Computed example of a mutant assay.
Amino acid sequence: MTSAPAEEGGGALRTVHVAGAGLIGASVGLALRRAGVTVTLSDADPEVARRAEELGAGKAALPEEPVDVLVAAAPPAAVAGVLLEAVAAGRARTYTDVAGVKEGPLRAVADAHPGLASLVGGHPMAGRERSGPGAARTDLFEGRPWIVTPLPGSGAEHVERVEALALACGAVPVRMEPAEHDRAVALVSHAPHVVAALVAGRLAAAPERAVGVAGTGVRDITRVAESDPAPWLSLLTANAAPVAEVLRALRADLDRALDALDALAAGGATTDDVEALLRAGNAGRQRLPGRHGGPVEHLATVPVVVPDRPGELARLLVAVEEAGVNVEDLEIEHSLGQPAGLAEVLVRPGEADRLAAALTAAGWSVHR
Results as ranks from 00 to 15, higher is better:
Ser3His: 12
Ala6Asn: 02
Ala6Leu: 07
Gly11Glu: 13
Ala12Leu: 10
Ala19Trp: 08
Leu23Gln: 05
Leu23His: 07
Ile24Leu: 14
Ile24Trp: 05
Leu32Pro: 02
Gly36Arg: 01
Thr38Arg: 09
Thr40Lys: 03
Leu41Tyr: 06
Leu41Val: 13
Pro46Asp: 04
Ala52Pro: 00
Glu53Lys: 13
Gly56Leu: 04
Gly58Tyr: 08
Lys59Tyr: 04
Lys59His: 03
Ala60Cys: 02
Ala60Val: 12
Pro63Lys: 08
Pro63Val: 05
Glu64Arg: 14
Glu65Leu: 11
Pro66Glu: 08
Asp68Gly: 11
Ala72Asn: 07
Ala72Tyr: 05
Pro75Asn: 01
Ala77Asn: 03
Ala88Ser: 15
Thr94Pro: 11
Arg107Met: 02
Arg107Ala: 10
Ala110Leu: 11
Leu116Gly: 04
Ala117Tyr: 01
Pro124Lys: 11
Arg128Ser: 13
Gly132Phe: 02
Ala135Tyr: 03
Arg137His: 12
Thr138Ser: 11
Thr138Lys: 08
Leu140Arg: 05
Pro150Asp: 04
Leu151Pro: 04
Pro152Val: 02
Val162Gly: 11
Glu163Val: 10
Ala164Ile: 15
Cys169Thr: 15
Pro173Thr: 06
Arg175Ile: 03
Ala179Pro: 12
Ala186Asp: 09
Pro192His: 14
His193Gln: 06
Val195Lys: 02
Ala196Asn: 08
Ala196Pro: 15
Ala197Ser: 14
Ala200Gly: 10
Leu203His: 15
Ala204Lys: 06
Ala205Thr: 10
Glu208Leu: 14
Gly215Met: 07
Thr222Met: 07
Glu226Gln: 15
Pro229Gln: 12
Glu245Thr: 13
Ala252Leu: 13
Asp262His: 07
Thr271Ile: 05
Glu275Ala: 15
Ala280Pro: 00
Ala280Gln: 06
Arg285Pro: 09
Pro295Gln: 11
Pro295Met: 10
Leu299Arg: 12
Ala300Tyr: 01
Pro307Asp: 12
Asp308Arg: 14
Gly311Thr: 11
Arg315Pro: 01
Leu317Cys: 09
Val318Ala: 12
Gly324Ala: 14
Asn326His: 15
Asp329Lys: 04
Pro339Thr: 03
Ala343His: 04
Leu346Cys: 03
Arg348Trp: 11
Gly350Ile: 13
Ala352Gln: 01
Ala357Cys: 02
Leu359Ile: 04
Thr360Ala: 14
Ala362Ile: 00
His367Cys: 02
